[in-house]
Amino acid sequence: MTASRQPSGCAPAYETEYEADSDQSLAVTISEALATVEGTEPWEIDPLYDVIDFDAVERLFQGDGETQRAMTLTFGVGEWNVHVHGDGTIEVFEAVRPADPSPTVESVVGD
């Protein structure tokens, strides 16, 4: 398990890893993570394709360069904030302060 990138005292409700070369899509991985924190089944949550374009997200994180590993995508789904990191870590946080409804991408490359 990797360390959270959130400020201290704000632990993720759930954390998992996405393997780009696996048979499971990013959308399924995130759906399963959200279903876990909601205590339900993935097919019982609202469709995530209404919130984010997963094809675009997967293209954004393609490759294994330093830029991709340093990126973080954040978006809100209901009462949860989801962080997708370029290293494959997916964190789900309770939305104490909801994320902007529009997904944001942050990249920190350098020392």
Rank of each mutant, 00 (worst) to 15 (best):
S4D: 06
V109I: 15
R69E: 14
I30C: 03
P12L: 14
E32Q: 13
D46M: 04
V108F: 14
S102Y: 06
E79Q: 11
S107M: 14
R97A: 14
P7L: 15
P101W: 05
F61W: 07
F61Y: 14
E15C: 10
Q24H: 05
T2A: 13
G65Y: 10
E94V: 11
I45H: 01
I30E: 00
T74S: 15
S107R: 05
E19I: 13
Q6D: 07
G86E: 04
D50T: 10
M1T: 11
Q6L: 05
R59P: 00
S22L: 10
F75V: 07
F61R: 06
D64T: 13
S102C: 03
I90M: 04
V82H: 00
G88E: 11
H85M: 13
W80C: 03
T29K: 02
Q62D: 12
V77M: 02
D46W: 03
E91P: 02
V108D: 11
I30W: 00
R69I: 06
E19N: 09
D111R: 15
G63Y: 04
I30Y: 01
F54Q: 03
R97M: 08
F54M: 07
T104C: 07
S8F: 12
E32R: 15
L48N: 02
E19Q: 13
G9D: 05
G39V: 07
D21N: 12
T40C: 12
I52S: 02
L34Y: 04
D55F: 07
C10E: 15
S22E: 12
Q62Y: 10
S22R: 08
V108T: 12
A35D: 03
S102P: 00
E44H: 10
L73F: 02
Y18S: 02
Y18E: 00
Q6I: 01
E38R: 14
R5Y: 02
A13M: 11
T40F: 01
P47F: 00
V28Y: 01
I90E: 06
E41M: 09
S4A: 11
E91Y: 01
M71S: 09
A70T: 05
D50P: 00
V92A: 09
V77N: 01
Y49T: 11
V51A: 06
G76R: 13
P42W: 00
S102R: 09
A13T: 09
V96H: 11
Y18I: 01
L73I: 04
F75L: 07
Q24K: 13
F75R: 01
T74P: 00
Q24Y: 07
A27R: 15
T104G: 12
Q68R: 14
T67L: 15
A99T: 01
D55E: 15
D55S: 10
Q24G: 05
V84P: 04
C10D: 13
G9S: 09
T2Y: 08
T74Y: 00
E17K: 10
P12V: 08
A35N: 05
R97Y: 08
G76N: 12
Q62M: 10
D53V: 05
E106S: 08
T36I: 02
A11G: 04
G78N: 10
V96W: 13
A99F: 02
D87I: 09
H83P: 00
V109H: 10
P101D: 09
T67M: 08
D46F: 06
S4R: 11
M1K: 08
V108K: 11
E58N: 03
S22I: 09
Y49N: 08
R59S: 12
